[in-house]
Design a protein around this nucleic acid. Sequence first.
DNA 1: TGCGGCTATTG
DNA 2: CACAATAGCCGCAG
Length: 581
Amino acid sequence: MSASSVVEELRRAGVQRGSLLALAIFSEVGVGFASPGFTASVATSASDPAALVQAIEDELRPRWVEWSGDTASALVRAGVRVATAWDLVAVHRLLFGGWRADPARVWAQVHELPLQTIPTAGPRNLFSLPSNDEADPEGPRQPDGHLRAEWTAGGWHTTPEHLARWAQLALEVAQRQQAQLAQMANPERAAATARAESTAELLCAELAVDGLPMDRAIAESIIGSIIGERPRTEAEAVSQRGQRDGEVLGHAPPGGQFDLRSPGQVKSLLRFVGIEVPDTRAWRLEALRDRHPLVEALLVWRKAERVSTTYGYGWLDENLGASGRLRGTWSGSDGAAGRMTASAGLHNMPADMRPAVVAEPGHVFVRADLGQIEPRVLAAISGDPQLARATQEPDLYAPVAAQLGVDRATAKVAVLGAMYGQTTGHGAQVLPRLRSSYPVAMAYLDAGDRSGQASQDLRTYGGRLIRMGTSNPNEVGEREARSQEAARGRYGRNALVQGAAAELFKVWAAIVRARGSALDARIVLCLHDELLVHASADHAEAAAQLVDDALQEAAHRWAPDGSVRFVADTSVIPRWSDAKD
DNA sequence: TGCGGCTATTG
DNA sequence: CACAATAGCCGCAG
């Protein structure tokens, strides 16, 4: 079947820009499509699945319904980047919270079926229940409504017809998800979040394939300056290690046997030289630098050990490809509040390594980071008019400090402390003034705190469910229980802010991704409040403008009332580490 | 072998 | 060491 005839059939079936078109693709077998009232499948032997998807994208630009980011990854690897998607896993996590989102679970929860009765995989023809579809006893549904284990276990997609059925099921899930989103407190906003979260999955698939441009020679020279040349043999590695250890142990009295990698033994070692500490964390040792030369040596050792074990030659070998791209796995909505996460050190690369992140020849980075995103987000989601007024200033903490009658540093720790749930220290002393100046914002945070303490689930501004796990009061003592309750309160309080910030960030990233494709400007790193865009030097200014414009558009779409201002610090630089402006 | 504790790195 | 994350090694239980 030719690509053009498939496109024509889909067009006749009413598929157009933005309409749901479910996709199931398995390159060895073929591809299945499903839209309302229309299903099709094409075998790989008859047509290249990726080329077919590309043709449909070019002609119709539907919103592709995909079971998960795996589909997007397969497409990107095949060179196809679609504009929009409806990612069932991403929307499932939005609706129901949590992390687990295998097809059987996604299906069950959206159909309000009990999770306990999800069938577990078994031998194919043993104990398998008949389908509840009499016309199709081999079909995917059991009489109890669950998907049959054979259909969810994987490895079954052996024919194009199976893929078409799988696409049909995806479409049904998407429609049910949309119906559930429509019942939420703010249906339009929840649907918008679902679309942005789905697009984030597309972006994650692209980030994983594209990687972060990194100069291996520079990276190796930075590593070399901290831990020395790359060892050529195992013996050399052992000797280098021993030498590093010796630099510290040389300050200790002779005869002792201490493993510097064991916190307990480091504590003993410090006691040997007359220093007693409850733990050996760097910030604590920092203050004791002058007490004994061993402390300084230990701090230097720790830094080198970190590079040696985590961000050293092994790290480069494992994650930096021959093409000069650092690649990790990306997750679009991870953890407590749905932030993006990445492996391979992409989110926690030491600042010392960042000079090695260099744009390719003829290219630059557009680096943009959001200023004070969390308090600005708090102003928006809580609707606090006084805090919203403060966001009009480029430095939000200046008007807050004036309002509270304290210096800027105090205002900052107070605001951050309020969002984190801090109850002691310098910032907390200003809490009463914060409450009287910004009562709406503070009430919003307190409500999140109370829900958390009571183990009641929360929803973010964009509609993401924050599940509050219930603890077992019988298993812990009274004091421990109270401390856990307080921790849940801080968790709930912060998840509302952090989660909403993640939602705004993804809307921003999605717009940059969409607008940037025309300039061939590509996002190569997402870092919670920072975007790194790799662009041709010829289009540097246009790309920078695009990133700034995208933020204003994102803010307008995400919080249309417009009372809160969002600001980005944007610069065009050859290296990630280069100074702003 | 798996897991909690400790530590360091980042936003 | 407030909130979140990834990741390595040690020590201990099974």
